Amino acid sequence: MKKTVGFLVNPVAGMGGAVGLAGTDGQAAEALRRGAVPHSADRAVQALSALRGQDIAWCTCSAPMGEDVLAAAGIDHYTVLYRPAVPTGAADTKAASRAFLAAGVDLVVFCGGDGTAKDVFDAVGREVPILGIPAGVKMYSAVFAVNPAAAADLIRRAGAVPCRDSEVMDVDEEAYRSGRLTARLYGYACVPYVAERTQGGKQVFEQQDEERAKDDIAAFIAEIMIPDTLYIIGAGSTTARIMERLGLLPTLLGVDAVRNGEVLACNADERTLLALLDTYPRAKIVASPIGAQGFVLGRGNQQISPAVIRKAGLRNLIVVATPGKLAATPLLYVDSGDPMLDREVGDSLQVVSGYRIAQRKRVVQTN
């Protein structure tokens, strides 16, 4: 039976990530000024290209909010239900979603981040399932596919797989940009669920044993640091503890660059990291997966882009996480934006989880 899918794109979603803005809500102009390149359309094309020829009736928005993506994906039969002014905003996302709901779609698919998810949920609530193609900076909500390829699979199977109640999170981007994670549960949306295809919600681990484990990890990483080597330290409380062990002030929700015990860049963007790698080609990247979701790359650390990873060398990626986080994170994911690079990661990663202790964790490959 043919299904009807409402589809929209937030054209500016995720632009703030690579340039160190930690989000794009209200910051699109600043992101462009810093040299950001829109990429949400590309992420959406990756997903929808795999659905060319499927028995789906598409409803969408005009121009960059949907129609352009469908055309680029080779889908030429669709109905435009909403025509936004350009540039688009949250009001357009809500209006388009209401138009999809009124048209009786079976599923609303959007490409964006947490802010887009919240706007879609505001409009449709629990009256129709929703699914996000991940293109934002953080994506703490549990309404997203793990990557564009997984989104295509979920859209294809929607109606034949169960839906689950999934968290929509309201993240304060102003607080996030200042280094504080302030998030609250906004509601529960209905989302098509397939294990290893639909992402989980972020969890925060703060037990006493976790704090000791962070200290142990930090002591070990500080001990094995190689002189005259650039260390790119990703976001998170575990990586922040490494900076503190070195006597340095961390950017909790950003990316720092350190060499020989000196901070060369704090809250660095992609362009800064690439310039540092030109000067200091011997480098290591230290990253920690998002708790419960399991994303090592592609969530909250887009500054560590495919170009940065390739220049540093994938073999120089060091992953750290506490035992408690790993216990609640059975699988790891990578969604760097470069499917070929994601495949090169392989089917497992070694994760430093204590002082001279490591666990090997499975990496789910969906591309």
Rank of each mutant, 00 (worst) to 15 (best):
F7L: 10
V204E: 09
V137F: 08
Y78T: 06
D106H: 15
W58N: 10
R343M: 14
V204W: 01
A268T: 03
I285V: 14
V9K: 00
S348G: 09
L264H: 09
E167C: 04
I304A: 03
A73L: 08
Q365N: 14
A287R: 00
L264A: 06
I75R: 03
Q46I: 07
A222T: 13
E211I: 11
R184I: 10
L21C: 03
F100I: 11
R164T: 02
V204N: 12
L70H: 08
V364H: 04
D278I: 08
G16H: 05
V194Q: 14
L248H: 07
M1L: 12
P192V: 05
A158I: 02
V137C: 12
S49V: 02
T366V: 11
V363S: 10
Q203T: 13
C111H: 00
Y140D: 08
V168D: 02
D55W: 09
V143M: 07
C111A: 15
L276T: 02
E270C: 05
V363E: 09
V124E: 09
V363D: 09
T329W: 07
C163M: 02
I217C: 05
V12D: 04
M139V: 12
S97V: 10
L107N: 06
A36T: 08
L264I: 06
D347Y: 12
A321E: 03
G112R: 02
G113K: 03
V263G: 03
G113E: 15
A117K: 04
T239H: 01
A307F: 01
P227N: 12
A102M: 11
V364E: 03
S97W: 10
G313R: 09
Y186C: 00
E270D: 09
E211A: 11
V308E: 02
Y188I: 01
S305G: 08
V80M: 09
G17P: 04
Q27L: 15
V137D: 01
R356D: 11
E174W: 10
V363L: 07
L185N: 13
E210K: 01
D209Q: 14
G104Y: 08
D338V: 07
V296L: 06
V128Y: 06
G14V: 08
I221D: 02
Q303Y: 07
D92W: 06
Y333N: 06
A151F: 02
S237G: 11
G113S: 13
P330C: 07
I155Y: 00
V171E: 00
M225E: 12
T79K: 13
Q46Y: 07
P11R: 01
A160T: 09
Q302H: 15
A22K: 15
F110M: 13
R259K: 15
A123Q: 12
A283P: 11
G74P: 05
A31M: 07
D114P: 04
G179C: 05
V204P: 00
A44N: 11
Y176F: 15
A36C: 13
V255Q: 06
A103V: 04
C111V: 14
A240T: 12
V19Q: 05
G132T: 11
S336C: 08
D209G: 11
L101D: 10
S288F: 04
A91V: 14
A71D: 12
S237E: 13
V146D: 03
G187I: 02
A47R: 00
N10E: 10
L181C: 10
N260H: 08
R43V: 10
V345D: 04
E262R: 15
V351Y: 00
Y82A: 10
G16Q: 03
S97H: 06
